[in-house]
Simulated scan of single mutants.
Amino acid sequence: MPPFLPPFDPELPAADLARALIGAELVVRGAGGIVVETEAYAADDPASHSFRGPTPRNAAMFGPAGHAYVYRSYGLHLCLNVVGRPGEAVLIRALSPSVGVETMRQRRPVGPLCAGPGRLGQALDIRLTDSGRPFDGSELALRPAPMPPGRILTGPRIGISRATELPWRFGLAGSPDLSRGFPGS
């Protein structure tokens, strides 16, 4: 399968990219699965790390589309994002594990493997040094969904305090691997 860039358009708004990534295959150094939950963050979004402009911490968000942006959340967990347009990124919130599951289980011996961005980061061995790396298949691979993923749920983002009303969280309906349920589903 081809790596990330085709057929994802690097000019897609963050919310459209977040929706397009549902059903894609994400593999990091031999472990991964199918993306089942994402959240979008735009350049003019007060909840986005890029809202106040480029800094050393968020520099990858202003780099090329199809690259990773990794940050530490709450001083503990590393979270993986896919960069889209300048200043925009999509947080990978959850995936359905299918590749290197035993390796992921060694990294996360208890509880769900990839249901939530912190768990996903631990299971996939996401590193701060991954920030800025391309999803080109060398260490990080992101391949388009081989077929439409099914019904996609939409709801407000979670774990943030600003712009909470934006319906920029997307999830695959019926997936047991979502980090949290969607309102009304």
Rank of each mutant, 00 (worst) to 15 (best):
I92V: 13
R162W: 05
R57D: 05
R105K: 11
M147F: 14
A15P: 13
V27I: 14
G155M: 00
E88Y: 06
P56D: 02
V70P: 07
P46Y: 10
R133Y: 10
N81Y: 02
G75D: 01
I160A: 06
A43K: 15
A94H: 02
S50R: 10
L124K: 10
A145W: 02
P6V: 11
R180G: 00
I152Q: 02
A15D: 14
N58L: 06
P97R: 05
I126M: 11
P149K: 04
R143L: 14
T103Y: 11
L140W: 06
P134Q: 13
L17V: 01
D177K: 03
P144H: 13
R162E: 12
A31R: 15
R85I: 02
M1D: 14
G150H: 04
Y71R: 11
I160D: 02
R133E: 15
D130H: 14
P46C: 09
S96P: 06
E39W: 02
V110Y: 15
R119K: 15
M61C: 10
A60Y: 03
S96I: 03
A141C: 14
E165S: 12
T164P: 00
G132S: 11
D45P: 14
L166H: 13
D44Y: 13
L113K: 06
H77V: 08
R127T: 08
P183F: 00
L17G: 05
G32K: 04
N58C: 08
P144A: 15
V99L: 13
L140D: 10
A18E: 01
E39N: 05
M61T: 07
I152L: 04
L140E: 07
P112Q: 12
A68F: 09
E139W: 14
Y71V: 09
Q122M: 12
L142K: 07
M1N: 12
V90R: 00
A145N: 05
F135H: 09
Y69Q: 01
Y69C: 04
P134W: 07
F4D: 12
G100P: 11
L120T: 01
A89L: 04
A14S: 13
G118L: 09
F182H: 00
I22R: 03
Y74Q: 07
F4Q: 12
P144R: 13
N58Q: 08
L76G: 04
A115M: 14
D125R: 12
D44M: 12
M147S: 14
H77R: 05
G33A: 11
R85Y: 01
R157M: 04
Q106A: 13
H67G: 08
V99I: 15
A18H: 00
G159I: 05
R72D: 08
V101R: 12
V101D: 06
A145Y: 03
H67R: 12
A42R: 15
G155E: 00
L80G: 01
T164L: 05
S73P: 07
A65F: 06
M104A: 10
G63W: 05
L78N: 11
I152P: 03
S98G: 15
L178F: 00
S161W: 05
G150V: 03
A14H: 02
D44H: 15
A123C: 11
A42N: 08
H49E: 11
S73D: 08
A18N: 00
